[in-house]
Each structure stands twice: as structure tokens, then as C-alpha cells.
């Protein structure tokens, strides 16, 4: 356990605790004779602030360590952020293009991010993955296929 890891966890927990405590003050007070909706959130927020203080106190007491700083952003973090961005973009793509087309694009990108470079193989895997998920979930299990708001492939095909 490194000092930095404790310190960052303490700061993060403290910030979340303070935001939660502030947000819970906006919950209306209880009607007389009732137990209000703010009691529990306020108690939990206060406990989180207390824990964050203890984490920071512990961090202060820990010696600076030579251990690898795994908790710090590294070059690999960029790839994680790219993957996360791809995830968020994928959600937007599903809304805009529908599941199948969005998955075809996202699967190509995700295989690319994981190091596949040969275009033919990449495309083949993307097509196979999209077909497998579509057949399994939308055809097999009957999950509702969202129509694309920008381009609706199903409507185009049925016309």
C-alpha cells in the first residue's frame, strides 16, 4: 500500500462525500412523525467524509515507498481512455445507426485497439461478431432492436 494510493483514495472519497452531503441537504425535510428521506444519505455521506479523513491521516503516516506507482496514470492509461471513449461512442452510435451497424463499427475499432492489424481478418472478425450477437440476442432472445435515429438500416432494407 503506497502513500499516494491512500492519498488519492482519501481525496476522492472526501470529494464524493462532500458532494453527497451537499446534495442531501436539498432533500426535503420529513413531515412530522415520519423518518425523513435525508437521514440515511446524510449519515452515509458523513461516514464517507470521516473515512476519507482517516485515509488521508494514514497516508501522512506512511513512508514514501519505492513500490511501483500502479495507481498513477501511465502510458497504458491512454489506451484505457481510448477504449472507454469507444464505449461511450458506441452507445451514441447505437442510438444513431441501430445495433447492427453500430456494432460492426465498434467491433472493428475494438479489435483494432486490441492489436489486430490485418484488414481482411479484422473485417471478418467484426462481421462474424456482429452477426453472432445479432442472431443470439435480437433474433434468438427477441430483444428489442433499436431503430437508428439517423440511419435505420432495417427500414431501408424493408423498403
Amino acid at each position: 500500500m503506497s502513500r499516494g494510493s491512500y492519498c488519492w483514495t482519501g481525496i476522492l472519497a472526501g470529494v464524493i462525500g462532500l458532494i453527497a452531503l451537499w446534495a442531501s441537504t436539498g432533500i426535503p425535510d420529513p413531515v412530522a412523525g415520519e423518518i425523513g428521506a435525508k437521514l440515511f444519505p446524510q449519515a452515509v455521506s458523513a461516514a464517507l467524509i470521516l473515512i476519507s479523513t482517516l485515509l488521508l491521516w494514514n497516508a501522512r503516516r506512511l513512508p514514501a515507498s519505492d513500490a511501483p506507482r500502479d495507481w498513477m496514470p501511465q502510458s497504458s492509461t491512454l489506451h484505457v481512455l481510448l477504449l472507454a471513449t469507444l464505449g461511450l461512442t458506441y452507445v451514441g452510435l447505437i442510438e444513431a445507426l441501430g445495433y447492427a451497424l453500430a456494432t460492426l463499427i465498434a467491433s472493428t475499432a475494438v479489435f483494432l485497439l486490441f492489436g489486430h492489424r490485418r484488414p481482411q481478418r479484422l473485417l471478418l472478425m467484426a462481421v462474424l461478431a456482429t452477426a453472432a450477437y445479432y442472431l443470439c440476442f435480437f433474433v434468438g432472445l427477441g430483444v428489442y432492436d433499436p431503430p437508428g435515429s439517423v440511419l435505420d438500416i432495417r427500414a431501408l432494407l424493408s423498403n
Binding site: 442531501s24 432533500i27 435525508k38 464517507l48 476519507s52
Partner: peptide, 26 residues
């Protein structure tokens, strides 16, 4: 401490939404 912090974070996330008794948003 980190275990307890994890627990408290989980509780806070679970409290997001309408309160089932009073109907107040949290």
C-alpha cells in the same frame, strides 16, 4: 479503510433515485 470506503460508495450509489417512502428525489 479502503474496504469501508468502498462499502459507503456502494451505498451512496444505491440511494440515487426516488425515495420509495416519501417519493422525494435523491
Amino acid at each position: 479503510l479502503k474496504g469501508l470506503a468502498s462499502c459507503l460508495l456502494g451505498i451512496l450509489v444505491a440511494l440515487i433515485g426516488l425515495d420509495s417512502v416519501s417519493g422525494y428525489a435523491r
